[in-house]
């Protein structure tokens, strides 16, 4: 008797009636829930900011955060290039671009922690001294947590790459990691403007 159960590789997910890859479909559904989560947080932050003094955000360091935003955009580029590399079956370039992603993502998170240290250390902005502060740390903290999860996921993807688990025909997990990372970048693009610049 032949085995009719499809053999699932890292590329192929469980059978789907839609003809779409189930894992990728699941990731897009997850990202849709994330859109709602972050939107509720942002709406809450904007409401808190509206009840705070108009110059409450003047303690934030725009030049440093602008550079940090650029660093996160660089990490999105390296993730996109890593997908392009494995599409060509180039595992070495995939690993190198993922390592660069780890570097850029780690830098972003380190700068955010430094910013928190400066703000809380000086007492200029803390989660407990103003509504603006509470909203600021809640929203950027939630985003930072997502970056942290992304970094762990990036390390796992690098490990899977070094184990030779991806090829030109088999890279869905890299693509799904990329979707998550780019989404985190999209959220920051919006947060940077709404928190620091507006």
């Amino acid at each position: 008797m032949s085995d009719t159960t499809p053999h699932l590789t890292m590329q192929q997910s469980a059978p789907s009636a839609t003809g779409l890859d189930s894992a990728k479909l699941g990731m897009w559904l997850f990202l849709a829930t994330e859109v709602m989560l972050f939107s509720a947080m942002i709406a809450g932050f904007l409401d808190m900011r509206g009840r705070s003094p108009a110059d409450a955000h003047h303690v934030l360091n725009i030049p440093v955060t602008a550079v940090n935003t650029f660093v996160l955009i660089c990490s999105s580029l390296t993730v996109a290039l890593s997908v392009a590399a494995i599409e060509q079956g180039d595992q070495k370039r995939l690993r190198n671009f993922l390592l660069l992603t780890l570097l850029f993502g780690g830098t972003f998170l380190s700068v955010q922690i430094y910013e928190y240290n400066v703000l809380i250390g000086s007492g200029e902005l803390t989660p407990w001294n103003s509504l603006f502060g509470a909203g600021f740390f809640a929203v950027t903290g939630l985003h930072g947590f997502h970056v942290f999860i992304g970094l762990i996921w990036c390390v796992l993807t690098i490990i899977w790459t070094s184990q030779g688990k991806f090829s030109a025909q088999n890279f869905m997990r890299v693509e799904i990691f990329g979707l998550y990372w780019h989404f985190v970048d999209v959220v920051w693009i919006i947060l940077f403007v709404l928190i620091y610049l507006v």
């Binding site: 849709a32 709602m36 509720a40 904007l46």
Partner: peptide, 22 residues
């Protein structure tokens, strides 16, 4: 297009929410 539909669907609720808050 299904992925776009899933991802942009919540924006119907989200954009008015953010706009009102802003």
């Amino acid at each position: 297009r299904w992925y776009a539909f899933i991802f942009f669907g919540p924006l119907v609720l989200v954009i008015p929410l953010i706009w009102i808050s802003l």
